[in-house]
Computed example of a mutant assay.
Amino acid sequence: MPADPGARPLDRQDPLPLWAQLQRDLSRRLTAGDFATAFPGELDIARGYDVSRHTVREALRRLREAGVLDSARGRPTQVRAAIEQPLGSLYSLFREVENRGMTQTSEILDQSLTTDAEAAAALGLPERARLFHLERVRLADGVPLAHDRVWLPASLAAPLVKADFTRGALYDELAERCGVRVTGGRERISATVPAPAERALLAVPRGVACLTVERSGYADTRLVERRVTVVRGDRWSVVADWTARGWSVGAVAGPG
């Protein structure tokens, strides 16, 4: 039996390697908030689970690669700070990541003028209307967080074809280059099982679902943005706060 009362026993008869079983149980405990005050050191984990430090190191390495933990030489391992998304207000993933001392970058998959019948319909435009399309993988400190696709009418957003979105924020570029400011919108959030291609794109661990966020953005009363964002479910969740005066809904990233 493990010495740590919060740990689940590892099965040495299971074909799944001990490090993978350990990684799975540490992920479970992280999700449950077991390490809210501090994350244990390698030696404490090894004693708590009755495994070698080599097993612990491999499990922690995988957790770091998944963006769950943060560590560097000379300082203890830490659970990555949460990234909060308040719903009911204009939200920028770029600013939220940067405000938490993390580096926001994007891998650009497509940045072009195109046509898309479904996106055009969502924007209330003719089927063959020209659209600006931006597709990117959003990363926080180099770890995939979200797969983001956005469409805007080319009549408004064509200059964005020349913008640099590897670090830039869409709304900033839209305002500066096109004179268009998104002032409000509507979002719909739903749970989803990622397709294999999506799972590979976001490096989603086995058994982890995602959340799909569909946004309609408005410039005053004009619908100007159609966005579909798939977010890793182990790094982002919806939360609600309440008081005697009422309640509000927001969202918060999981560790990473």
Rank of each mutant, 00 (worst) to 15 (best):
M1L: 07
P2A: 04
A3G: 06
A3Q: 11
R8S: 13
P9T: 03
L10Y: 07
D11E: 05
D11R: 07
L18H: 04
W19A: 15
Q21R: 08
L22E: 04
R28S: 09
R28W: 02
G33I: 02
F35N: 01
A36V: 11
A36Q: 11
T37D: 12
P40A: 08
L43V: 15
I45E: 05
I45R: 04
A46L: 02
D50L: 15
R53V: 13
H54N: 12
V56A: 05
R57L: 10
E58Q: 14
A66R: 15
A72P: 01
G74M: 01
P76M: 06
P76A: 10
P76V: 10
P76Y: 05
Q78I: 01
Q78E: 12
V79T: 15
R80M: 07
A81Q: 11
E84M: 02
L87H: 01
L87V: 09
L90G: 09
S92M: 03
S92Y: 09
L93C: 00
E96S: 15
R100G: 12
G101M: 05
M102G: 08
M102T: 01
S106C: 13
I108A: 06
L109W: 01
Q111D: 02
D116C: 12
D116M: 05
A120Q: 10
A121Q: 10
A122M: 08
A122T: 05
L123D: 09
G124I: 06
G124W: 08
R128V: 00
A129S: 15
E135A: 13
V137H: 03
L139V: 03
V143Q: 10
R149Q: 15
R149H: 03
R149I: 07
L152S: 11
L152G: 07
L152W: 04
A154G: 12
L156K: 14
A157H: 07
A158K: 14
A158F: 09
P159H: 05
L160S: 07
L160Y: 07
A163R: 06
A163Q: 04
D164W: 11
D164T: 05
G168N: 11
L170M: 05
L170D: 02
L174N: 10
L174M: 06
R177M: 12
C178I: 10
G179D: 03
G179S: 11
G179L: 05
G179K: 10
R186P: 00
R186A: 14
I189D: 00
A191T: 09
T192D: 09
V193S: 13
A195V: 07
A200V: 03
L201T: 15
L202T: 08
P205H: 03
V208R: 12
V208L: 02
A209T: 14
C210F: 03
R215P: 02
R215K: 05
R215Q: 07
R215S: 10
T221E: 15
L223D: 09
V224I: 15
R227F: 00
T229Q: 13
V231K: 12
D234N: 15
R235V: 06
R235C: 04
W242C: 11
R245M: 12
V249R: 06
V252M: 10
V252A: 12
V252S: 13
V252Y: 00
G254I: 09
